[in-house]
């Protein structure tokens, strides 16, 4: 994948010319220790979630009333909860649900939102107006309220959370892509492609899409964290993952009544969630700087 640079920018960013977006991204990450830490944290999360059954010292679901509310110790690093289950084990398994929600929500909204944005921005006029008004309607709902409401009707479940998340962030992708497409629609290279007799589909997917791809990647990376947050939030409210599935938001809700005596049940799942969101925000920011030609001109 090559990153096209507008003519006006090329003079000042000669160093970028002829280098792939991957090389530029790598360079940005290597230049920032914090970004590497963020990336490392995400990798650890992914590995921990994938290999949870091999790493976890205990069973995430089986109850053990003899060991209720054991404070953090050598046997239970992060303590145990009200049902005597190991918090560390449940956090490892909970990462699976959180990751699953985050990735799938974004993937789904990208798959629907990006084509809508491409079509609306490229063809304009009535098609654009119709599609955008429909999306405005989704945006007229405040995000979490929309998700809560949708899930309340569909029934509490992880897959419904993903649907609610995806529907809600779909307009964000569509709008961004539309704006980007509109700004390049009349540029020389699109005109040239048109002049050469290329079809609309070919222009859209071969010439315009690669140009807006960096923006989509950045938005997707930033959106994963908010999807994970919404997912955990819904689970906290009892609308997402159902007991006894280990999920960070649900674990926080379980720990809430015992805050006074067993703070570890609430502290650790939330801390891990915060760190994961933090890491993906940092990675998203770095990607944005790496893939945005303007940021290097400063």
């Amino acid at each position: 994948m090559r990153l096209s640079i507008p003519a006006s920018a090329s003079a000042k960013s000669k160093s970028r010319a002829g280098r792939s977006a991957w090389a530029l991204t790598l360079e940005q990450f290597l230049r920032r220790p914090l970004a590497l830490v963020g990336l490392g944290m995400l990798l650890v999360l992914i590995l921990a979630a994938v290999f949870a059954p091999y790493i976890a010292p205990y069973d995430p679901i089986r109850r053990n009333f003899a060991e209720r509310f054991v404070p953090p110790s050598a046997a239970h690093w992060l303590g145990t909860d009200a049902l005597g289950r190991d918090v560390f084990t449940r956090i490892l398994y909970g990462g699976r649900v959180t990751l699953y929600i985050g990735l799938l929500s974004v993937l789904l909204s990208m798959l629907i939102g990006v084509p809508i944005g491409l079509v609306a921005g490229y063809f304009g006029k009535l098609i654009d107006a119709t599609l955008m008004r429909m999306l405005d309607l989704i945006l007229a709902f405040p995000g979490l309220i929309f998700a809560i409401w949708l899930v309340s009707m569909l029934g509490p479940d992880v897959s419904q959370v993903i649907i609610a998340n995806a529907v809600f962030s779909l307009p964000i992708f569509a709008r961004l892509v539309r704006g980007n497409v509109m700004s390049v629609r009349h540029s020389d290279y699109v005109m040239a492609a048109y002049g050469l007799g290329m079809s609309h589909g070919r222009i859209l997917f071969r010439h315009i899409l690669p140009n807006v791809l960096p923006t989509i990647i950045v938005l997707a990376s930033l959106n994963i964290s908010s999807a994970m947050l919404t997912g955990a939030g819904l689970s906290y409210l009892g609308l997402g993952a159902q007991p006894p599935t280990p999920e960070w938001g649900a674990m926080l809700a379980d720990g809430r009544p015992y805050l006074r005596d067993a703070w570890w049940v609430s502290l650790f799942p939330g801390l891990v969630l915060t760190l994961v969101v933090l890491a993906s925000n940092i990675v998203g920011d770095t990607l944005r700087d790496a893939l945005d030609p303007r940021s290097l001109r400063k």
Binding site: S225, L229, A232, G233, Y236, G249, L252, A253, G255, R256, L259, W263, S266, L267, P269, G270, L271, L273, T274, L275, V277, L278, N281, I282
Partner: peptide, 17 residues
């Protein structure tokens, strides 16, 4: 950045604690 990443349902119980 840390503040923007904290979920309310964690910050709340922690402030309470």
């Amino acid at each position: 950045i840390f503040g923007a990443s904290m979920p309310t349902f964690w910050l709340g119980p922690m402030l309470m604690l």
